[in-house]
Design a protein around this nucleic acid. Structure first.
Lengths: 202, 202
DNA sequence: CCTGAAATTCAACGCCTGATGAACTCAACA
DNA sequence: TGTTGAGTTCATCAGGCGTTGAATTTCAGG
């Protein structure tokens, strides 16, 4: 018999409101600038409670990042369908993620990645092992070029995210997904499937 | 008679060594994470001396950013020559800047822009008013599309910088400029001159 | 030499940070 | 009903931050 007596977990709204406040604050300010006190204040909660639930700031960050994005589900969704439209679909899926509620968490890790070394590693490893590698294997690209091709795709996607969600450069920030997909998709497509200079064969 | 007696400015090595330490530290850690104490330590100097020379951290940052990058010189350099190769030249010039010593300062502002609101505004305003607007006027693009085209170019350039210098994704980080220019240039070119969906005409 | 201004140092201020541990509340079980 | 343990609060720690102002050193002018 595990739990014999005592108050039962009961109200776990608090835990989730901390999580939500953390997600928003991390997304707004990045890892370093988001203070536990600010998060706690946002959740109308004592700062010590944050530690009670999540231990350390790092663990809280990981808890925030844990659920929302599942590449195993998104990558096939982006790659299903004719190869000639894979680029556009990829842009559409990526922007869709960032525009969704889950995108808040993604934006948090993105923002944090530029000022903090370990979050940068986090993002790089995630992108490389979870997204790019998966996409490469599903698209059956020429292995000799696959790494470079997927890295190039990453530049276009990352740049779009950066310009639209972080720097908020107009008219990009206000454009709708269809417009952007039509404009950027073909470029991604070229990175994916068009012939590349011989330099890459090495 | 302005200065009548007293020690003359003399040794300004100190000022420059602070500036250099600041440039490196800002580039490594971004604006917020780079502490005045760390910069002073890097320059083997008392923290108070930094304030003596530059007043505040913000002014020090601006002093670091002040000199090194001159769009008035770079933009024409990127745009001179046949329009059909403008994309590739643009990539080449951009990467050239970041690979140069001056690029350290540029990387600093780039890094800072994601975690700090006012450096983000700084970068956005700089990019929009100093680089994009200038490029647009020199290339005589259709005004109806110019804003969107230059913003799209910005996404590809920013993404490349991010992947290569911040996230350091391989094989991008180790590739030489020629390779990248050949791979990415055509995409930039398409953003610049290829026909765009009608949606943009608005 | 001596004066005075610049260069440099030192100690301290007030504030914020992440984190800790003890105290208190209170619902549920024995 | 009394015990238990989770939920919650509070005071506090040690440390880093940007910044300040006064003291001290250094050195070129008059």
């Amino acid at each position: 018999m595990a739990r014999r007596s005592g108050r039962r977990p009961g109200n776990q709204d608090t835990r989730e409101s901390i999580l939500e406040a953390a997600r928003n604050t991390f997304a707004e300010k990045g890892y370093d600038q988001a203070s536990i006190r600010a998060i706690a204040g946002d959740a109308a909660v004592d700062p010590a409670l944050v530690h009670h639930y999540f231990g350390t700031k790092e663990k809280l960050f990981l808890a925030v990042m844990n659920a929302p994005i599942n590449p195993a589900e998104l990558v096939p969704q982006a790659l299903a369908g004719p190869r000639e439209q894979a680029g556009e679909r990829l842009v559409r899926v990526a922007l869709g993620v960032w525009d969704s509620p889950a995108g808040t968490a993604a934006l948090a890790v993105f923002r944090s990645a530029l000022s903090n070394e370990w979050t940068a590693r986090l993002l790089r490893d995630f992108v490389v092992t979870q997204v790019l590698r998966r996409a490469v294997s599903e698209m059956t690209l020429d292995p000799a070029e696959a790494e470079m091709r997927s890295a190039l795709v990453a530049t276009q996607i990352a740049g779009t995210i950066m310009a639209r969600y972080v720097l908020k450069i107009e008219p990009l920030a206000s454009a709708d997904i269809d417009t952007l997909a039509a404009a950027i998709g073909p470029n991604v497509q070229r990175f994916l499937t068009d012939p590349m200079p011989e330099v890459f064969k090495s």
